[in-house]
């Protein structure tokens, strides 16, 4: 399944989608950035409520296929712009983290 297909299936709002055809391989949930870098695997969906600019570097370095900001968290335009430049997909979900994860699980 690709990130684009996930968006269609789950109705997440894509605010940055430079790599829509990236394949998804599993999911990791976490807000502590070093935990994410230590435990997330390449091509995971990363669900978080952390929306500061450092998530772009973490997503790039950990090679996740997309970030999903859950719980209705929004993201600054400046970060969206940087995500586009760095090839990082960012999706927004109004659902709670658990429900977002369940939706991803059912989709993939």
């Amino acid at each position: 399944m690709t990130v684009n297909e996930l968006i269609e299936k789950c109705g997440f709002n894509a605010v940055s989608l430079p790599e829509p055809e990236r394949e998804i391989n599993g999911c990791y949930i976490g807000d502590l950035l070093s935990w994410v870098m230590g435990r997330a695997e390449a091509d995971n969906v990363w669900i978080t409520i952390m929306s500061n600019i450092n998530i772009i570097a973490v997503a790039t370095l950990a090679d996740v296929c997309c970030i999903i900001l859950a719980e209705g968290v929004t993201v600054d335009d400046e970060i969206v712009k940087l995500a586009g430049e760095k090839g990082v997909n960012i999706l927004l979900s109004d659902k709670k983290t658990y429900e977002t994860a369940v939706a991803v699980y059912e989709a993939i």
Binding site: L32, L33, S34, G38, M50, N52, N54
Partner: peptide, 14 residues
């Protein structure tokens, strides 16, 4: 900001 979890050095070693 999501840092300072005490995982930095352990991750480097990992």
């Amino acid at each position: 900001l999501g840092f300072g979890a005490g995982m930095g050095l352990p991750n480097m070693k990992r």
